[in-house]
Simulated assay, not measured.
Amino acid sequence: MFYRKNLPGWERAMRAIGGVAMIAYGLFGMPGTTGGYLVAGAGAVAIATRFFGFCPMCAMVGRRLPSP
């Protein structure tokens, strides 16, 4: 199933940086805690949305990229 991309390039880059930071903080800043694993999981989701260029929450509110 293919989805239409709804994230601009600058936001995809920011999601990658933020996702790596969230994973690092979750695993090293809060080691062995449930909250740490939740933060790391949220970081993994941010990186996944960056990779695919599609955010389901943005699509739910009708966000789209301008047509080329």
Rank of each mutant, 00 (worst) to 15 (best):
L38P: 01
I47M: 15
V20F: 15
Y25V: 15
G41V: 10
T34I: 12
L38I: 10
M14V: 15
A59F: 01
A40G: 05
K5C: 05
N6V: 07
Y3M: 11
T33I: 02
R50Q: 03
W10Q: 08
A24I: 11
A59I: 02
G19K: 02
M30K: 13
A46S: 13
R12T: 10
F28D: 01
I23Y: 02
Y37S: 11
P66M: 02
K5H: 11
V20N: 12
G32H: 06
T49D: 13
E11S: 14
G26C: 09
V45W: 01
F28V: 06
I17F: 14
L7S: 14
A16I: 15
G53N: 10
G19M: 05
G41I: 10
R63H: 02
F51H: 03
G19N: 04
A44M: 12
P66E: 01
V20H: 06
G35K: 09
R63Q: 08
R15I: 02
S67H: 00
T49N: 09
L38R: 08
M1C: 02
I23G: 14
F2S: 12
G29A: 03
A48L: 07
A16N: 15
I23F: 11
V45T: 14
G18N: 05
A24L: 09
S67M: 07
V39A: 04
C58M: 15
L38S: 06
R4F: 11
P68K: 03
G62K: 01
T49M: 12
A48R: 00
F54Y: 08
T33A: 07
N6E: 08
L27K: 13
F28M: 09
R63T: 04
M60E: 14
G53V: 12
L27F: 14
L65Y: 02
R4M: 03
P31N: 04
Y25A: 14
R64A: 01
F52M: 05
F28K: 06
A44F: 06
G43Q: 00
F28P: 00
N6T: 05
Y25I: 05
V20G: 11
P68G: 06
R64Y: 00
Y25C: 11
A21Q: 07
A16M: 15
K5M: 12
G32N: 03
G29M: 01
M60P: 01
R63V: 09
S67K: 06
R12N: 01
P66Y: 00
M22P: 10
G9F: 06
P68R: 07
F2C: 06
R12K: 07
A59G: 04
R63P: 00
G35R: 14
A16K: 15
L38D: 10
T49L: 12
F54Q: 05
P56R: 01
R63I: 09
C55A: 00
F51K: 12
R50Y: 10
P66S: 04
M57G: 01
G43T: 07
G19L: 11
F52N: 03
Y25W: 15
G53Y: 03
A40Y: 06
L7Q: 10
G43L: 00
